[in-house]
Design a protein around this nucleic acid. Structure first.
Ligand SMILES: [Mn+2]
Ligand SMILES: [Mn+2]
Ligand SMILES: [Zn+2]
Ligand SMILES: [Zn+2]
Lengths: 157, 157
DNA sequence: TTCTACATTGAGAATGATTCTAAACCAATA
DNA sequence: TATTGGTTTAGAATCATTCTCAATGTAGAA
């Protein structure tokens, strides 16, 4: 197994998540910042913020800009290569990102953290949702599709 | 039926949503801005933003500050008199608020709108959720309770 | 009612996340 | 290698929200 920490260089041909091939498949250019950001996002389960990703990739390319992190994350989300999880806590907390393609639910906590729901529970909940009701609600709202999210409940009891 | 638009004055004793009594019950002071904001929020189903509420109450008290809108909304939410619905779209959209105490689900759209789910569908979905799974997930996350939200799904197909 | 102590308000500054701008740069193709 | 149009960057701009603190108002005591 190849280390995920080694430096990438122009002639590296063994992208671990095959970033180059995936980008080509999506018809988007393969640039050094994009590869670094995508691989950093793929190699963690922690749902990092843009700022956290910036800290990580700066270790490999000090000149990389925070604006590029945002640009690239938007690109990845638009191409279905990453999910964005908006903050739900107080104030304006940072969004978090996830490149994990396995279908799984997130637990969105009020302190800003986002953690993966265990696979078995994730499946139980997903299977329990009546699909036709979601369809009807989507129609009611005039949108193509709706999905369920699990967020912390801070109701005063 | 009494008009909801008349001006309130110091000796008004017939608060429509009984703001004065509700505030007393919660042990919070009854001030003019709070009454105006709470009554404005109670008399709409549109899930207004802080800015939208500001526009509304300024018609009744021109001097009211946007900071007071935010202060009061936080107070109402903390006391269970209103819900906050965080924005999920691009960028940093404004949160929306709802004082409707009837249990109902919201459809959170990516353009920032929030609409009430019809009662029957809302109930169908709520009843379908296995409560014990939510419990187990809450335990896994180390929080007291979790809840379901319905948000627009913009997955690339 | 008047007094008093302390909570609340309001104008504007500060903050934090994200987006925009425009000039320098670089990837893909021929 | 030359060309061309997409990409990157630093910093400014934007937007929602929070903070600051002096002025004001509320609730309870006297
Ligand atoms: Mn995840
Ligand atoms: Mn509602
Ligand atoms: Zn490599
Ligand atoms: Zn009245």
């Amino acid at each position: 197994m190849v280390s995920v920490d080694h430096l990438h260089h122009d002639d590296c041909t063994h992208e671990h998540h095959d970033a180059k091939a995936i980008f080509a498949e999506q018809g988007i250019r393969c640039t050094k910042p994009r590869v670094l950001i995508y691989e950093a996002l793929c190699s963690t389960k922690s749902h990092p913020t843009a700022e956290e990703l910036h800290q990580i990739v700066k270790d490999q390319d000090a000149g990389i800009s925070l604006a590029t992190i945002y640009n690239t994350l938007e690109l990845l989300v638009d191409h279905g290569l990453a999910r964005r999880i908006a903050n739900r806590g107080q104030g304006s907390g940072a969004s978090r990102y996830d490149a994990d393609q396995a279908p799984h639910l997130h637990l969105v906590l009020n302190d800003g953290r986002v953690i993966d729901a265990p696979t078995n529970l994730s499946k139980k909940l997903t299977d329990a949702i009546p699909h036709e009701v979601l369809q009807q609600l989507a129609q009611h709202a005039g949108v193509d599709a709706l999905k369920i999210e699990i967020v912390e409940d801070t109701a005063a009891v």
